[in-house]
Design a protein around this nucleic acid. Structure first.
Length: 715
DNA sequence: GCCGTATAATTTTTT
DNA sequence: ATTATACGGC
């Protein structure tokens, strides 16, 4: 095979690794995707049946790409290539009965979860003014991804908010169960439970998956790692690939602990480092490397490249965000005039709100563009409204979809009546649809309401009866039956045209999905909709400039990258400025953005920016000062401002205060944990808590006064 | 009791 | 700009 032809020795070693655990620490741009794909292709080439292979990717898009590559190499494949969430959904559907669900369960997204919790708050009689569903959703989600049960949570709950959360958590679980629904965390958690409690099922999958690989391992959470370990328990052929410097999802529960644990959980695991970068110019790589060196909580790693030196990095100062967007447009123009295609260019930013000014500027300058993932398509109101009908047809128990669909458009059953319906349903132990259909003992409905209730039940039944028809037909029928379109057409919604276009787009998406998956059911389509992100819908072949968040850019590369909004408060983000850990994650995010660039990189900031309508003066990001000055070319466009670029901002990594002679960034030696480096110090009364990154033991918090730390020279 | 309109409030990143 | 709540008309 020619897979090895151009490979470096390290890559070659990874590709040819057969049995036993393997961890690949792959620096940015080191060709890791190629390596894992090649390794799997080689396994298959050497006689491993594809059905014995499981490859976990971070996004559905990455899964689709890998599948495509495999199919060009080997033809149609029966290997499982998917995200953790999709894999879990698939396993759970096959065995839902063991957990008391049916295979038709619906997957709740964050909004659904919030509505569900909101109605529980109301039902429980908690003061809904002071308790925000979002906060509880966050607390419960955090508990779930650390595998903390409602009982455990209640035992440790402290303070009014946690106490309330402890009350809501089991109710939420109960509601999900009786709605026959699972949220994103459940997919992982329930799957783990299924495998742990049913040894026959675990056996089946552990037998089947002889070779397992997990991509973007640095961004997996504890449950995901537990799942991977469970599935690998028989053959122990698990290959994880990751780069600690690219951890950008700790807010979603990702933890580097997984990387530290791996070698302990799989003794004798081979560790391979890929440190040669094939993507970026020397200049870009050097700048990114210097930046990431400012992270304290990090193992030193040096990326090298044979690529040419390349152009200097352009740093642009602008007056405000419009000015910035214009400068970006001009920069793009220059690139295009220099022979660059639009699809070679990406504009990256920290928050979705930044896309608006950029979009206007693209329109104004006539530059073709696509925005990835602003208001995710499937989360738009009109789309969710139609989906609610479809979901209800698949699963009558889904109370959240019921609440959404039943009065969209209005059917004469308002807040009060719906509250009564919900009360009766829980009192009699039936579903809300049953109450509506008059199957309960009590009914709160007036004669007139009964009529429209019947009409509504009829609509749902009609959609349900179409279950063996093509998905497109079902979606079209749902749009028609709901009366939604008609209402938009007469109504005075000034964005009616947009909404109608979006519903057409939904029908197109269903058609496209139906074409690619001929056997697909409505339920499959709904699952796809729940798990597929906007990035997955991104069409990279079109000749357009791509606008997206730094998070969405993970795993991608572009010849030209422009990162906007390098300002204190935006990158690093204001909400991440409280703790050094979070600042480091912001720095990694910036690092990820910079290392997407192959040839040209531009970084921009504005002196003023509107934040929710009000203009604020801004300071250039500290990250700009962490990039070597000789790697950049600074351009200022708007005149009349005093010079303030470098120099003025001092380079203080967090401004830690010293204590017992220790300060942030110091290298230390601990009796048990060995060598480490202090990330942060926090005074707690008389004592000082030190957050320390240990080379062997990972992140720990120790009390400085008791820890008996010794000074070290550095690693 | 329902529904539409006005007013207030609010945005990090996403499977 | 979109979305949650409040209020008044029906």
């Amino acid at each position: 095979m020619n897979l090895l032809e151009n490979a470096t020795p390290a890559q070659r070693e990874a590709i040819t690794h057969h049995d036993g655990a393997l961890m690949i620490l792959a620096g940015a741009g080191s060709g890791k995707t190629l390596v894992i794909t090649s390794r799997i292709a080689r396994l298959i080439h050497d006689g491993v049946p594809p059905r014995n292979i499981l490859a976990i990717t971070f996004t559905n898009k990455a899964a689709a790409e890998m599948k495509e590559r495999m199919e060009t190499l080997l033809g149609r494949t029966s290997a499982w290539i998917s995200t953790f969430h999709s894999m879990c959904a698939r396993i759970l559907r096959a065995h839902a009965d063991r957990l008391g669900f049916t295979r038709d369960f619906i997957i709740y997204d964050t909004d659904d979860t919030r509505s569900c919790i909101k109605s529980l708050i109301k039902k429980t009689g908690l003061d809904s003014a002071s308790f925000n569903p979002r906060v509880f959703a966050g607390i419960i989600s955090r508990a779930k991804r650390d595998a903390i049960t409602p009982d455990d949570f209640a035992a440790c709950a402290y303070g009014p908010v946690e106490k309330a959360a402890a009350e809501l958590y089991p109710q939420y679980e109960q509601a999900l169960h009786s709605n026959n629904c699972m949220d994103f965390d459940d997919l992982l958690l329930m799957c783990r439970r299924l495998l742990r409690e049913n040894s026959d099922i675990l056996q089946k999958y552990a037998d089947r998956f002889r070779y397992i690989s997990v991509d973007e391992f640095q961004d997996t959470n504890p449950i995901q790692y537990m799942l991977a370990r469970l599935l690998a328990c028989k053959h122990k052929n698990i290959c994880v690939v990751g780069d600690p410097d690219q951890t950008i999802y700790t807010w979603r529960g990702a933890t580097l602990q997984n990387i530290f644990d791996f070698e302990k959980d799989f003794p004798g695991a081979k560790v391979i480092r890929l440190e040669q970068n094939f993507r970026s110019t020397k200049n870009i790589l050097r700048a990114a490397s210097e930046l990431i060196k400012h992270n304290v909580m990090r193992k030193e790693k040096t990326l090298i490249t044979d690529n040419p030196e390349g152009d200097e990095i352009t740093v642009m100062e602008s007056g405000d965000e419009q000015d910035e967007a214009d400068n970006v447009a001009r920069f793009i123009r220059d690139c295009v005039d220099g022979g660059c295609a639009h699809h070679d260019i990406a504009v990256l930013f920290r928050v979705n709100a930044q896309s608006r000014a950029l979009e206007e500027s693209m329109l104004h300058h006539n530059i073709p563009y696509t925005i990835v993932g602003t208001v995710a398509f499937y989360r738009r109101k009109e789309i969710k409204d139609i989906l609610a009908y479809l979901r209800l047809a698949v699963n009558r128990d889904d109370a959240v979809s019921f609440t959404r669909a039943v009065n969209t458009p209005p059917r004469g059953m308002g807040r009060v009546t719906l509250g009564r319906i919900s009360d009766i349903a829980s009192r009699e132990g039936v579903t809300v649809m049953d109450v509506l259909a008059g199957k309960s003992k009590e009914s709160p409905l007036s004669k007139r309401q009964k009529q429209s209730a019947n009409a509504f039940c009829g609509i749902i039944e009609k959609i349900r009866a179409m279950h063996d028809k093509p998905v497109t037909d079902i979606v079209m029928e749902a749009v028609r039956l709901s009366g939604y379109q008609r209402r938009l057409e007469d109504g005075r919604d000034d964005r009616a045209d947009d909404r109608i276009a979006n519903m057409d787009e939904l029908i197109n998406a269903a058609a496209e999905y139906g074409r690619q998956n001929e056997e697909a059911t409505l339920q499959d389509f709904l699952e796809q909709v729940a798990l597929v992100s906007d990035t997955d819908r991104w069409d990279e072949k079109a000749d357009r400039v791509t606008l997206m968040t730094l998070h969405s850019a993970k795993g991608l590369e572009f010849p030209v990258v422009i990162i906007c909004g390098l300002e204190e408060g935006l990158l690093p983000h204001m909400l991440s400025m409280e703790s050094p850990d979070q600042i480091e994650e912001e720095r990694r995010l910036c690092f990820v953005g910079m290392t997407r660039a192959m040839k040209r990189l531009a970084l921009t900031y504005a002196r003023r920016r509107a934040v929710s309508g009000r203009y604020h003066d801004r300071m250039p990001s500290r990250f700009l000062n962490e990039i070597p000055a000789d790697a950049v070319d600074i351009r200022k466009t708007a005149a009349g401002e005093p010079d303030k670029t470098d120099g003025e901002l001092d380079d203080d990594p967090g401004g830690f205060s010293g204590d017992l002679g220790f300060k942030g960034g110091d290298y230390v030696q601990h009796e048990h944990f060995g060598p480490g480096r202090i990330m942060s110090l926090q005074k707690r009364g008389r004592l000082t808590h030190a957050r320390i990154f240990f080379e062997e033991a990972g992140e720990r918090t120790v009390v400085l006064q008791y820890a008996n730390l010794k000074r070290e020279e550095g690693w």
